[in-house]
Nucleic acid binder design. Sequence first.
DNA 1: AAAATATTACGAAAATATTCGTAGATAGAC
DNA 2: GTCTATCTACGAATATTTTCGTAATATTTT
Lengths: 130, 130
Amino acid sequence: MKNNPLPKPTESELDILQILWEFGPSTVRFVNDQLNKLKTTGYTTTLKIMQIMAEKGLVARELSGKTHIYEAVAKEEATQLQLLDRFVEKVFKGSAAKLMLQALGNKKSSPKEIKQIKKLLEDLENNKEL
Amino acid sequence: MKNNPLPKPTESELDILQILWEFGPSTVRFVNDQLNKLKTTGYTTTLKIMQIMAEKGLVARELSGKTHIYEAVAKEEATQLQLLDRFVEKVFKGSAAKLMLQALGNKKSSPKEIKQIKKLLEDLENNKEL
DNA sequence: AAAATATTACGAAAATATTCGTAGATAGAC
DNA sequence: GTCTATCTACGAATATTTTCGTAATATTTT
């Protein structure tokens, strides 16, 4: 029994995962309709990518009548974290702090979000271990 | 006179930019040697990518004797920010706060870095505009 | 100057990702 | 049943990125 880590999704695959995360198990038709709110994509293109994702194990599918229902196997937080690690490594040479300083300094965050982050920082300061 | 925004660098291009940012203007030979500390890459491969980067405007080059000296045109902070924007959009659907919560919760940051971030957050709270 | 060494230019091959046409299968409407 | 709409499978075409072989040019060594 294989237990390989899931591969890094490509950009198109990530678009599809976002939809499956948001709406739960879906048909290709539904996913394609959602995708087309952002960019035009042919039905067979979406189908093909979802088939590839199934081969890679990023999604699972189950037959329901004549159509397949696709479900994300890659979990949202785990995938985000995997991509974040890579991104920090590649772009910020491993310095998550530098990333955050740039993100905070240049993006508007709501006061509520800022409070949330401050609280987390205090927790981090008090509790060296998390 | 053109003033187009610089294109998003590919992964290999980013590896090269990191070296030029760190060491300043360099020859292909030097960049390739540095790259080979991370992964094996043939000299002509590095040369080709740097030539493409010059076409795109990501780097500039100047002849010095027989060799070219390449220099980053894309600035480090601006490039990081450009990539960060894209990344937040694609992976976190635009929520920088969510990204930071994940990054803070899962990465170790030094106390000094945490203080730095806290200070920035206070500035953000006091001064709605930055 | 000839030989050895290092560099650039060019283009093609390989690897990866994306797009879509076409054919065949299935389900529902008539 | 037959017709129509929808879906899947398959493979090929396109696009992008990465890799590298080869030839031409220039520099250094002997």
